[in-house]
Structure formats: C-alpha cells, structure tokens
C-alpha cells in the first residue's frame, strides 16, 4: 500500500532555493524563456516542434539542477489523458481520414479503429501537455513569488499605464501560484479525513454519476476551505493597510546586458524552430 502524500506529485508553485545558472537569471530572462518554450509547445505546427519544446524544457530543468524524476512525477497524470484520448479517437472517426489504420476492430465500416492521423493527434496532445507541465514546474521552481509579482507588475504597468491595476493583477497571479501547494495540502487532509470515514471515492462503482457523487465529500470541503482561506487572507491584508494604492514601488534590479542577449537569442531560436517545423517537418510528417 502507498502513503497518501500529495506533495510528492506537486512541482508547480514550489520555489526551490538552490544555486544554479537558471536561478541566477534575472526574472525578465526567466519570463522570456517561459514565453519562448510555451509558444513553441502550444503553437508548433507539428508534434516535432512540440517535442523540441519538451527537450528544451528538460534541458532547462537540468540546468536548474532540479531532479528530473521529481519534475517528471506529475506527468503520470498524463497517462489518463492519453488513454481517454485514445479511446475517443478509437470510437469516433475524423471525416475524410484515409491514413493508415494502426488498430481496427474488424467491422467493414471501420467504426472502431485507430489511424495514424489519430495517433498523431494523441501524441501531439500528450507531448504539448508534458512540455507545458515541465515548463511550469521548472519556472515556479526557479522564481520566487515576489520576483514574479515585480516582473508582472513592471510589464503590466508599461502595458496598461495604470500602476494600481498592474499591481493587483500581479498580486493575484502570484497568490494563485502560491495557493497551489496550500490547496493541495488541504485536499490531502480532506482525503485522509474522508478515507478514515470509509469514503471510497467511487472505487466501488462503475456508474459515472455515482462516481461523480462520490467525490462530493472532497470537493465541497476543499472549495469551502479555499474560500475561507481567501477571505482570511484578504482580511489580514486589509488589516495591514493594503488598498492597492499608494504603495512603495518595488525595486527591481536592471537586467544585465548579457541576459538581454540571452533573451534575444531565445526569441530567435524559437522563431527558427517554429519555421523549421512549419517548412520542413509539417510537409514531411503528415498530417501532423
């Protein structure tokens, strides 16, 4: 039997304080890398481009001296996504899909089958999701919430020309990230409490409605607790004179020139990879 320990599977929202080339980067450079990898992972024309993003994410994790096994642990959940997607592709067919059938349950209509095209779709979804999960885990492991706030605030202040909205948006973003491990802790506590009261969480039924109902003992208390926490935090902030206006501006150190070059290089490399994927890979990897 395994221990109920949710934190083992959480890498998002947990800054890891170690010395590494990635940790030493200016926050702006970290954000630039996050932007580049995300753009490539989400918009690359084929899964080859998304795969390149995945490789870059792995490289970034290694450069950040983070254990790859720990960073990759959340990817286990992608297995369920993959199985579900394969099932859907197996049951439903794309109109006009004439690609090679990888798997077929012998009916003349080929209603239940998996084609190369569909396999490509599944691979694309999984690779893109894996690249994004690794990238987000890497990013939140190398940047403190305060650095994240300051960077977002600085960017939004220039973009929106309103310092109050910029600060509030930045604060909300950072707190959302900070709450990930906190809510995971709450969820773990509730799971333990309900498991102690004999809750099966739907493991004893195949009825999807009954399964969904079986999760109510988790979702209701966790939602209530999250709202309570948010209210308490808001009260504590108000008590410390927080209004969002008239705050002392955060000092952010200027970005070194070498890192400006790094950002430019990353942007160029992303554009190049995207172009290669579009012009070379896409015609070659059909349809994806």
């Amino acid at each position: 039997m395994k221990s109920l320990e949710f934190f083992r599977n959480i890498s998002i929202g947990q800054y890891i304080d170690i010395a590494s080339p990635m940790h030493a980067l200016h926050p702006a450079a970290k954000f630039a890398l996050l932007f580049c990898i995300s753009i490539l992972a989400l918009t690359a024309p084929t899964f080859a481009g998304a795969g390149a993003a995945l490789l870059v994410a792995v490289l970034c994790i290694l450069l950040a001296r983070l254990p790859l096994g720990m960073a990759a642990r959340p990817l286990k959940s992608l297995l369920y996504v993959a199985v579900l997607t394969i099932l859907l592709q197996f049951v439903f067919s794309w109109p006009g899909d004439q690609s090679l059938r990888v798997l077929s349950l012998g009916t003349s209509l080929h209603a239940l089958s998996l084609t190369l095209y569909e396999t490509g779709i599944v691979a694309s979804i999984v690779i893109r999701a894996a690249a994004m999960m690794l990238t987000l885990g890497w990013f939140t492991s190398i940047i403190t919430e305060q650095d994240a706030i300051r960077s977002i605030e600085r960017f939004l202040r220039k973009a929106l020309r309103d310092s109050t909205i910029a600060h509030q948006a930045a604060l909300v973003s950072a707190m959302a990230l900070r709450f990930v491990p906190i809510i995971a802790g709450e969820l773990e506590d509730i799971v333990k409490a309900q498991a102690s009261r004999g809750a099966s969480f739907g493991s004893d039924t195949r009825n999807p409605i009954a399964k969904a109902r079986a999760y109510l003992p988790l979702f209701v208390p966790v939602t209530i607790r999250a709202l309570e926490r948010a209210e308490l935090l808001a009260e504590a902030m108000e008590a410390r004179c927080y209004t969002g206006r008239g705050r002392t501006e955060q000092a952010l150190s200027p970005i070194p020139k070498s890192q400006i070059l790094l950002i430019l290089g990353a942007l160029l490399a992303t554009a190049a990879l995207w172009w290669v994927d579009l012009t070379l890979c896409k015609p070659w990897i059909r349809p994806y």
Binding site: A174, Y242, T243, R247
Partner: peptide
C-alpha cells in the same frame, strides 16, 4: 498560515510598511 501574504520572510514583514508608502 492564513495571514502571510508573501513567500519570503523579510518581504512579508515589509508588506505593511510598503502599503503605507
């Protein structure tokens, strides 16, 4: 845990005075 605003000790202490400008 419910009254700590930031993720770093000194930054959390500074939160109030920063609000005072």
């Amino acid at each position: 845990a419910d009254q700590i605003v930031t993720s770093c000790v000194e930054e959390d202490i500074a939160f109030g005075p920063e609000n005072l400008g």
